[in-house]
Design a binder for these strands. Structure first.
Lengths: 174, 174
DNA sequence: ATACATACATACAAGTCTGTCTATTTTTTT
DNA sequence: AAAAAAATAGACAGACTTGTATGTATGTAT
């Protein structure tokens, strides 16, 4: 069995993603992770601290998965289109729960700056990802915006239809 | 002084939009609206019921504001560009709180279907709004997607910069 | 063998939440 | 003016929240 800290993070990842941040309590996390409350607070100062750690880890794993998924494509154009396939792939895998980062953005207040910064930095990296594939800066932004709305809209309508439309649009502009 | 029901809705509108749905309790709403708790439950079956009513009213007022804002433009192209100005206008006015509908989507669970339906219907109407301005269906979707991500990204980075970039992109494709 | 770190269970504080209920007062309608 | 409807205050239930405190048990390193 993995360490308590690991078990907390594993459980929190699932619960935050499926139930939302505010709707998931510490008590549920520790009970499902089989960890004592005192142990929880030995590893994490506050719930927000856990959230930051969770987001940092998700940032890594998400980008790794994106890299891996798009690595099969040979040129930049193919990579961009594959990234939209990646959205569809993740939607199926995670039951259209959308983007953890954007979901949490909608849940937190302006005071929870440390969380907001992780989210901003994640999205910045995503913009960089597209910028590295496309010379034209405005076109990279264009793709980024379509990527973002593809996630949001497919979450809202629980369907990949709009992602496919978006992909068709992207194909026509690159 | 307006009726209790009206005062509840006025207060809830502000609080839901500024603090989020889950972070706003009934007690705060009624105390700030100067309404007794029993009166609240005379007008609204549950908190979710209040949420649905709030969203329906915001749907109306938001579209009225959009219509008014874009009514000055004479042709379809101008109207579309003006709708991006509308985002910026609302961002300034409401301190970059983003879209109430998308924010609440991120907060609710799959069980709260009645709320989800109002959100879906709101976004459907927005798609229709653009469809009526643009012959080409795929182009209308394209604009809609850029509109949506403009709201999200400006909320995240608390800046209208991305909306202006988005507007420039739109200008180049219509 | 002694010391240390880590994890354990669990009680507790102090507050939040939604929703129900009673009893009284005010307002509106007939 | 009398009857009906609406609104009031606020106690209450019961469950939830985050975070702290206390004391115990276990495993590892010196």
């Amino acid at each position: 069995m993995s360490s308590p800290r690991e078990r907390i993070l594993e459980r929190a990842s699932i619960l935050f993603h499926h139930q939302g941040y505010n709707s998931t309590g510490i008590n549920q996390i520790i009970s499902e992770a089989n960890v004592a409350k005192a142990s929880f607070y030995q590893h994490f100062k506050t719930k927000d601290d856990l959230c930051v750690t969770f987001l940092n880890r998700r940032h890594e794993s998400w980008f790794n998965a994106l890299s891996e998924f798009t690595s099969k494509s040979e040129n930049a154009q193919e990579k961009i289109l594959a990234s939209f396939d990646f959205i569809m792939h993740m939607n199926e895998k995670e039951n259209f729960r959308g983007c953890s980062f954007l979901n949490i953005m909608s849940e937190i207040s302006k005071e929870q700056e440390s969380i907001l910064r992780v989210i901003q930095s994640h999205k910045n990296d995503l913009r960089v990802f597209f910028s590295q594939l496309i010379e034209d800066e405005l076109l990279a932004t264009h793709i980024y915006l379509l990527f973002e709305s593809s996630i949001i809209e497919s979450q809202l309508f629980e369907s990949n239809e709009i992602v496919n439309k978006s992909k068709a649009i992207v194909k026509s502009i690159i």
